[in-house]
């Protein structure tokens, strides 16, 4: 609207320069570190990193948990979002409030609850022993399952929100129309609901996937050093082994993964316009 370029730049540049100097520059230097050696440019940081079995395991586990959490969140999210979208407007508003409420609560608090649930004297173990299903408490904490549950609980609201807003855009009566035309619920889902909410699924999926990828608290509390993920591995490499090259490699992997996911999100979200 305004054509005064200099004025516009004067308003926009402080924020951009701040982000550039305090963000992109330091992160850029950090990332470049893995490519440098005394002899010049090198890829040995990366080859060394991936030659260690532990690192391979952690990398694959992070990827696996990210996909699993996003996938599970999508399945539960669809059921929940569809149920919520069928409520009356008032009830829908209330339930929506309850869904986003956990997002406002500290992740430390939300993760800490799982210790109470899954710990040696937690609810689950009490129940198992009490019912005679186990003789002694079994180890539930510091397992992949614990991390999975923690991440799922942490990020599922993002999936439900994304799917709900996508479902708002489904025209009224197309689902009854499909039913009248003879589609069963299975067909209604795959031929009507899924294509119409594809964007929401991609947005939600990306948010959950990158969230799980870059979460630190959940794997730290519920996985510990037994179930390392890339973020906790990075912390360990720096704080325990002072290995900054590995830290730089992990940083690069995390950025590439979340950047790719974000790019994908943008591409698909704008494709239909």
């Amino acid at each position: 609207m305004f054509s005064n370029t200099r004025e516009g730049l004067a308003l926009a540049l402080p924020a951009a320069i701040f982000a550039l100097l305090l963000f992109i520059l330091p992160v850029g230097i950090l990332l470049s570190e893995a490519f440098q050696s005394d002899a010049g440019w090198t890829l040995s940081g990366y080859t060394d990193f991936f030659s260690k079995p532990l690192n391979q395991t952690v990398f694959l586990r992070t990827l696996k948990l990210g996909v699993l959490v996003a996938g599970t969140a999508a399945v539960i999210g669809y059921a929940a979002a569809f149920s919520i979208s069928n409520l009356s407007p008032v009830a829908r508003g209330r339930v929506f409030g309850l869904v986003i409420l956990p997002l406002m609560i500290s992740p430390v608090a939300r993760t800490y609850a799982w210790i109470v649930i899954l710990g040696r004297t937690g609810i689950v173990n009490d129940a198992l022993v009490g019912l005679g299903l186990a003789e002694t408490p079994i180890r539930l904490l510091f397992t992949e399952t614990a991390v999975f549950l923690g991440l799922l609980q942490l990020f599922m609201p993002l999936m439900i929100i994304s799917l709900l807003s996508a479902m708002e855009n489904i025209p009224r009566d197309v689902i009854p129309a499909a039913r009248v035309l003879g589609a069963n619920w299975f067909q209604v889902f795959f031929r009507v609901i899924l294509p119409l909410t594809k964007e929401g699924l991609v947005v939600g999926g990306t948010l959950v996937f990158t969230g799980a990828l870059t979460a630190y608290i959940t794997p730290a509390i519920l996985g510990g050093s037994k179930v390392l993920m890339l973020e906790t591995l990075l912390y360990q490499q720096v704080n325990v082994s002072n290995d900054f090259v590995s830290a730089s490699v992990i940083a690069m992997i995390l950025i590439i993964m979340s950047f790719t996911a974000n790019l994908l999100l943008k591409r698909i979200a704008t494709a239909r316009k």
């Binding site: 230097i29 940083a251 950025i255 979340s258």
Partner: peptide, 18 residues
């Protein structure tokens, strides 16, 4: 960009280079 880059990396980068 700060939303895309994982926080732990930002913290580490600021520690080392600032």
């Amino acid at each position: 960009s700060p939303i895309i880059v994982p926080g732990i990396i930002v913290g580490l980068a600021l520690l080392r280079y600032m």
